[in-house]
Design a protein around this nucleic acid. Structure first.
Length: 215
DNA sequence: CACGCGATTGCCT
DNA sequence: GGCAATCGCGTGC
């Protein structure tokens, strides 16, 4: 049994508090550490004065070295340059006519990042429903390109600094129920498909993939 | 400049 | 579970 609510009614949660934002030192660690550490954190952007976003429930690490699946594996190019930016900044890339967002880790020039794969929707749900063209909460942010569409994220946000930009927030949650974490191989890869660099909140209904893979 | 592919999604069987 | 849609980018002619 899952501890998640069965209905699609959003539970009341506090508004994101910018004073709880993660500092740059959080991102200046090993990429798997940051990927695991981001689980449970709040991720939101301010759009038209309102916060939109939710709780991070699924991430993947993409390494600077010995990782053929990483966009940095063949060096720096115009399109992946933001992945070599300062830790705590965004790397947004296009794929299949959609976008996915990463948070840069380690240090500037390294080329490592964490892909945010899924959020539990908490704020701006009506906005996300409108942007996604879907009503059900489970179809808003359950996948890396879904959440970018829900939050209106695209290449314009490539390089945005999450630590200092007042319209973006990655923060300590409050309150935070206890949860367990599982590590697995990453999703959808043809190369380096066997590296255990995916992290997700056990049993959470907003984790992507089949329900049987959530445990 | 043509071609092929991908850290995806959604519809179909 | 299979597979088509879709398009920016890297590669090579």
């Amino acid at each position: 049994m899952s501890s998640e609510p069965a209905s699609d009614s959003p539970r009341p949660v506090p508004t994101p508090d910018p004073s709880r934002g993660l500092r740059r030192s959080f991102y200046r660690r090993s990429t798997p550490q940051v990927a695991e550490g981001l689980l449970g954190k709040w991720f939101a952007r301010r759009l038209g004065g309102d916060w939109i976003g939710g709780r991070i429930v699924e991430t993947e690490a993409y390494l600077a070295e010995d990782d053929l699946a990483s966009h940095s594996a063949r060096g720096r190019t115009r399109s992946n340059a933001a992945m070599f930016g300062p830790p705590g900044s965004l790397y947004v890339y296009p794929i299949h006519a959609k976008h996915c967002l990463n948070v840069v880790t380690e240090q500037e020039g390294r080329g490592a990042a964490v892909l945010i794969r899924a959020l539990e929707p908490l704020w701006g749900i009506e906005t996300m429903q409108r942007r996604r063209g879907r009503e059900r909460l489970r179809e808003l942010t359950r996948g890396p390109a879904m959440l970018c569409q829900a939050l209106d994220v695209d290449r314009r946000h490539d390089g945005v600094d999450l630590v200092s930009d007042p319209d973006w927030l990655v923060a300590e949650p409050s309150p935070e129920p206890p949860f367990q974490i599982t590590c697995s191989t990453r999703i959808g890869l043809s190369r380096a498909a066997d590296m255990p660099l995916r992290f997700f909140v056990n049993g959470n209904r907003f984790v992507s993939g089949k329900a049987s893979d959530h445990r």
